[in-house]
Simulated assay, not measured.
Amino acid sequence: MVDNAARDALRAFVSERDWAQFHTPENLAKSIAIEAGELLECYQWNAQGNEQAIRDELADVLSYCILLADRLGLDAEQLVLDKLEKSRAKYPVEKSRGRSDKYDQL
């Protein structure tokens, strides 16, 4: 999961450039969507994608997610763990194993 080293490095990077003023929750959420689109673009014409481009775009998405969680005073790792617990309840193994159906269709 996300450790404090990544969050702390991102905080330092942003601070050195005085970019926190631009990192409103709205702007960070927009940036996540934009970078996710760029990640998807890596697969636009090639199902395999370019590995380095994928790594770079995935890093951008993750970076903005970490920054948004931090800006909101949330622990990114704990968010994932909490959501995983909810998903476990919605998708019990005995009903969902090997299936891609939405929880309300199981």
Rank of each mutant, 00 (worst) to 15 (best):
V2R: 00
N4M: 04
N4G: 06
A5T: 08
A5E: 06
A6T: 15
A6N: 01
R7Q: 09
R7H: 02
A9C: 02
A9D: 10
A9G: 03
L10A: 04
L10V: 08
F13S: 09
V14N: 05
S15P: 00
E16N: 08
E16G: 07
E16V: 02
R17K: 09
R17W: 05
D18V: 07
D18L: 03
D18G: 04
D18H: 03
A20V: 09
A20Q: 10
Q21G: 12
Q21E: 13
Q21M: 08
F22E: 10
H23F: 15
H23A: 09
H23L: 13
T24Y: 01
P25A: 06
E26Y: 07
N27V: 06
N27G: 02
N27L: 02
A29D: 04
A29F: 07
K30C: 06
S31H: 02
I32N: 01
I32F: 00
A33Y: 00
I34T: 12
E35S: 05
E35I: 04
G37V: 11
G37Q: 08
E38Q: 11
L39Q: 08
L39R: 04
E41F: 11
E41R: 10
E41G: 11
W45M: 10
N46W: 03
N46S: 14
A47V: 14
N50I: 13
N50K: 12
N50C: 13
E51R: 13
E51M: 09
E51C: 07
Q52I: 15
A53D: 15
I54K: 06
R55E: 14
R55K: 14
E57L: 07
E57G: 04
A59K: 10
A59N: 14
A59L: 12
D60L: 06
D60A: 11
D60E: 09
V61A: 08
S63F: 02
Y64T: 07
Y64L: 06
Y64N: 11
C65I: 15
C65H: 02
I66L: 03
L67R: 00
A69F: 01
A69C: 13
D70Q: 09
R71A: 13
R71K: 15
R71C: 14
R71Y: 03
R71S: 12
L72S: 09
L72W: 08
L74N: 04
D75H: 06
D75R: 01
A76K: 00
A76S: 13
E77Y: 00
Q78P: 01
Q78N: 08
L79W: 00
V80E: 06
V80Y: 00
V80Q: 00
V80N: 01
V80H: 01
D82I: 05
L84W: 09
E85G: 05
S87W: 02
R88F: 08
A89C: 03
K90C: 07
K90P: 02
K90F: 03
K90D: 14
Y91A: 11
P92Y: 04
V93F: 11
V93S: 11
V93C: 08
E94N: 10
E94I: 10
S96F: 02
S96N: 12
R97C: 06
R97K: 11
R97Y: 09
G98L: 03
G98Q: 02
R99A: 14
R99K: 14
R99Q: 14
R99F: 11
R99E: 13
R99N: 12
D101M: 05
K102H: 14
K102L: 14
K102E: 15
Y103T: 09
Y103M: 04
Q105N: 12
Q105M: 13
L106S: 11
